[in-house]
């Protein structure tokens, strides 16, 4: 198929026209047919749930939401009735994560695109624009088992730090710093590290970006996000949110030695963190992961 023909087909499909996918669409989820494989992140454990690292013990699971508000009723989504919703507990630092797990068959460029928005729980009649601490996106990747030299697990993390301790920040950040790895249980087979910890985040160069929060907490405007990464070189290729193309050419993803059972892993994550004693919500209208076509 010629590229022109492919573009014409993509642009004539109202579901796909708002995306810019690479040649092969690995998945397209709009959450009007269920959660489509997006599930909760759970910490590793052996024998007892008490063996889980403390930070993992209360990661909140995703759900489907039609964005019903107390004042305006149902908002719905950009292209349907349901979004994937991540909701924290009502306390500072509480995190909710949605993860979709697969493996890759070609070590080349991949592109994750999403339409998302975030808002705090409406518990008071105020703007609450600093109640959500952060929303983020990351891949959890590991090279092929055919990799001979220095096999690695690679975890590119990017977050939008909306606010911290009640003060607006509105800046994209990344994380390269490795978190401590702990043995879990006694078998020697299970390890765990809390890579979403608050330590180690660094401002993305030129990463300031003010989003359309809108005037009150029950109004939702959808944002476009795109993260490009190369599975061959395990490096960032690009990152944009709405009209801002951010420079990721000089930043490194988190790297740790390869683990014994994660070969060709391709996991995509989104998460949200609360900054206060009300719940923080991240909504995903739709997510598309695409890849370069193998030969």
């Amino acid at each position: 198929m010629t590229n022109d023909m492919r573009q014409a087909l993509l642009h004539s499909d109202p579901r796909l026209s708002r995306f810019n996918p690479l040649e092969r669409i690995l998945f397209y989820d709009d959450f009007n047919q269920g959660m489509q494989g997006w599930t909760a992140l759970i910490g590793n454990y052996e024998d007892s749930l008490d063996s889980m690292l403390p930070e993992y013990r209360d990661i909140r699971p995703p759900m489907l939401s039609n964005l019903s508000m107390w004042d305006s009723g149902t908002v719905g989504t950009l292209t349907g009735n349901y979004a994937l919703k991540l909701a924290t507990r009502p306390r500072p630092g509480s995190i909710s994560v949605g993860i979709k797990r697969m493996t890759f068959r070609h070590a080349g460029p991949i592109r994750l695109e999403a339409f998302f928005t975030f808002k705090p729980e409406v518990t008071e009649l105020r703007l609450a624009e600093t109640d959500v601490r952060a929303v983020g996106v990351l891949f959890d990747l590991q090279v092929s088992d055919r990799t001979v030299e220095n096999p690695l697990r690679i975890m590119p993390h990017i977050r939008y730090l909306n606010a911290l301790d009640g003060k607006a920040v509105e800046r994209w950040q990344y994380k390269s710093e490795r978190m401590s790895m702990y043995d879990i249980g006694g078998s020697g087979k299970t390890r765990s590290h809390f890579h979403l910890a608050p330590e180690g985040w660094v401002d993305l160069p030129g990463g300031d970006q003010r989003l359309c929060y809108n005037e009150i907490a029950t109004k939702h405007n959808w944002y476009y996000l795109r993260l490009d990464f190369d599975l061959k070189t395990m490096s960032y290729l690009g990152f944009r949110c709405n009209d801002c193309v951010h420079d990721v050419s000089e930043i490194e993803p988190m790297q740790i030695p390869a683990m014994p059972n994660l070969w060709c892993m391709l996991n995509s994550f989104f998460w949200v963190e609360s900054d206060c004693d009300s719940r923080a919500f991240l909504y995903l209208d739709s997510v598309l992961l695409s890849a370069e076509m193998e030969e």
Binding site: R60, S68, A87
Partner: peptide, 17 residues
């Protein structure tokens, strides 16, 4: 998941529309 309940408790709300 592995949550302790003592005294008054509330399980987290869930959207089920």
């Amino acid at each position: 998941l592995n949550t302790e309940w003592r005294g008054k408790f509330t399980a987290e709300p869930f959207e089920v529309a």
